[in-house]
Amino acid sequence: MSFIKDYIEQQTLNRRNLLLLSAYGLCGAAAATALRPTGARAVTPSPKIAWSYRDRTNPYWNAIVSGGNAFVRSLGLPESALINLINGGSSEKSLADIQSLLARYGSSLALAADPNDMPNCRPVVEAVSRAGAYVSTIWNKTDDLHPWDFGDNYVSHMTWSDIGPSEQTARVLFDAMGGKGGVVHLGGIASNNPAIERLAGFRNALKAYPNIQLLAVQAADWDTQKANQVMSGFLTRYGDAIKGVHCASDTMAYGVIEALRAEGIEDMPVVSYDGNPQAVELVTKGKILATVFTNPYWAGGITASLAYYAATGAFKPSAEPHEHREFYGPTTLVTTKDAQDFKAKYIDTNPQYDWKNFWSMTRGQIQYGKTI
């Protein structure tokens, strides 16, 4: 359990260092300028590969980038060949860093990206398309933005169907509470697709448990320190009325657990999401009752692979069916009953993946307006 306190203390310093790292290699780039539209599809034998993401101090994003590194190694390249664009949760920085990279490399860029929030996805995609480069995105985009509207340059978008799995974690929590008592929910960034869907799944579960009282819902922005502060506030406000905690991510659960420990509370039922190694370890010990694994290692590698092989001309995105361009990634519920076996298979070692088998683990085309 000491890792939680260490994790919280190191976040501020690590985030500052990683933000500096995100600018490494970009200092000599020209300032971002308006990029001209391109005509015919350009093929680049050896495109530059980049991953744009929030924060590598976060175990989830560390796993994403580890998958990206594994893909790069599969090409016979050193891990340093992967350009890391770390935005620290800023959509403005995300777009500015991508524009700077496009100003340097133009159409010779294969980009994997989480745009940080839904509205930011469109300007990122438009900038990449104007440059004639290639981008595959995950998690965050608006429902009206589709890869097939941008020819080959917007290669793909992957998200996860979080409503059903989040409802499952809520049911695990409510059952542990004996089907009654007060519950609080800590959510992610309000404009993030996963935050919206995980809250929706939580609310769906509430409908089947009339004796569970929802005390509060508050965003903690996927951040451990903010979650710690939010949970401390909940404890001050609601005290013993809180009988369970539903967290939209593992990293926020760490802050919740530390806040509970500070009040001498060791047995509060808590559930979370993402299946990070530390969270799975806590599930094996019963400190977290359930989490949901989204296989970020595979997602990080396959997203980079899709952008790269589209850039090289190995496949033509516009010739693929829609289910190969917008799709769900895999999810697995991990509970105290199966956490040990799961840990041995997915956490203690990373399975070997065929990075050219792009859609082997996808779960069908994204469906809008449906709760699956």
Score class of each variant (00 low, 15 high):
T336C: 03
I83H: 11
K243C: 02
Y7E: 13
N204W: 07
A253L: 14
L199V: 00
N357Y: 05
W148P: 00
A190H: 08
F293G: 01
L260W: 00
N295T: 05
L19N: 04
A42E: 07
E263H: 10
R36H: 06
T335G: 06
N350Q: 11
W139K: 04
V280M: 09
T362W: 03
V271Q: 00
N276R: 08
L111S: 05
E258I: 07
S2A: 08
L82G: 02
V292Y: 01
Y309I: 11
G106Q: 13
R73W: 02
G301L: 04
D152L: 03
Q225A: 13
C121R: 01
T284A: 06
N14R: 15
G39S: 14
D223Q: 13
G188H: 05
T362R: 07
Q229H: 03
I257S: 01
S52D: 08
D240K: 12
E79Q: 09
A113N: 09
P269R: 10
E197C: 04
L206S: 09
S22N: 04
L102I: 08
F174T: 03
S90T: 08
L18Y: 01
Q367W: 07
G67E: 02
P296D: 07
L306W: 11
Y309V: 11
W298F: 11
G28E: 11
G182M: 09
A259D: 06
K285S: 14
V245E: 07
D175H: 08
E266V: 04
L306S: 06
A81P: 04
T331K: 07
A127R: 10
W51S: 07
N58M: 08
V155Y: 01
A30F: 00
S156V: 15
L85P: 02
V292D: 04
S74W: 11
S166P: 06
S22R: 10
D341T: 07
W51H: 12
A290S: 00
